[in-house]
Amino acid sequence: MNANGMTLNQPVKLTRNQKFWLRVRRNWILHLMMALPMFYYVLFEALPLYGLQIAFRDYSAADGIFDSAWIGLKHYIEFFSDWEWKNIVSNTVAISFYQICAGFPIPIILALVIHINQKKFLKKLTQNVAYIPHFISVIVMVGMLNQIFHPQFGVLAAIYHELGIYTVPDIRYMDTTFRHLYVWSGVWQNMGWSTIIYVAALTGVSHELHEAAKIDGASRWKRVLSVDLPAIMPTISIMLIMRFGSIMSVGYEKVYLMQKSTNIEVSEVISTYVYKVGIAGGRQSFGTAIGLLNSAINSAMVILVNKIAGWLTDGEAGLF
C-alpha cells in the first residue's frame, strides 16, 4: 500500500474519454490513415448534403441556394404528373432487377470455378482474362457493341453473311434487344472483377472442413455445395443487400450512349431523365428532387432487404 492507502498494482480507473484518447495515442498511425477517407466523406459526401434543400426550392443561379424561393413539393408533383414517370421508374427497376438476376450469380459461379481449379497457371490466367474487361471505359464498351453488331460491317453481320443472309437486323437500337445487350455486356465486363471478393472469401474456408468432408466420402462437387458455398454465404448475402441498395440506380452513361429514338421506350431510366431535364436542361432543382427520391427509395430497399435476409437466416445474415 502507498501513503494514500491504495494498492500500487491496482489498475488506474480511467474515464471513457481518457480511454478513447489512450486508444488514439496508442494507434495514432491507424487513426491518421483513417483520417483520409474521413475527410473525403465529410468533404464530398456529408457537407454537400446542405445543397439538398434545392429539391424544395426553385433554384436560380442568380439567387443562389439560400435565396431561391421555397416551392415545397412542386418538383415531385411535376414528376408524378408526367405521363412517362411510371415508364421511367419501371424501366429503371426492370433493368436493375435483370442486372441482379443475370449479373449476381455468375461471379459466384466463376469464383467457385477459379477456386476449385487445381492448376495454378490456368487459375491465374482465368482470373486475369476475366478481370481485363473491367478496365474498358463505357465509351469504348458501347463503341465495341456498335462495331460488333453493326448490320453491315460488324462481326454479327459477318456471321450472317457466312450463312448467306444479307438482311441483318440492327439489334443495336431495337427496343426488344436493348435490355439484353445492356445487361449481358455489363455481365461480361464486370463478372471477373466481381469475383475478387468471393475468391478472397473462399481462400478463408477452413481446410479441416474439406478434410472432414473428404473422409466422409464427399465428392468435389458435394464439397462445393456443402462446404464452400455455405462458407461464403454471409459474404453473398451482404453483397446482395448492398446490391439492392442501388436497385433504383442505373448509371446514366451507358444507357445514354445506347439510347436512340427506336429504343427510348425501354431505355429511358431515372438517371438519363434527370441528366436530360435536370443537368443538361439547366433545372438543377428538379434534378436534385428526383435524385433525392431515388436515394430515399434505395435506402429503404437496403433496410427492407436486410430485414428479409435477417428473417430468412434467423438473424445470421444481414448487414446491421
Binding site: P151, Q152, F153, D170, R172, K260, S261, T262
Partner: peptide, 20 residues
C-alpha cells in the same frame, strides 16, 4: 422488304454512309 436500311432512324454517322 430490306430496301431501306433502318439506320435512317438511328444513325447520324456520316462515316457509315461513306463506307457504303
Amino acid at each position: 422488304e430490306g430496301l431501306l436500311a433502318s439506320q435512317v432512324l438511328t444513325s447520324s454517322s456520316a462515316n457509315e454512309m461513306k463506307q457504303l
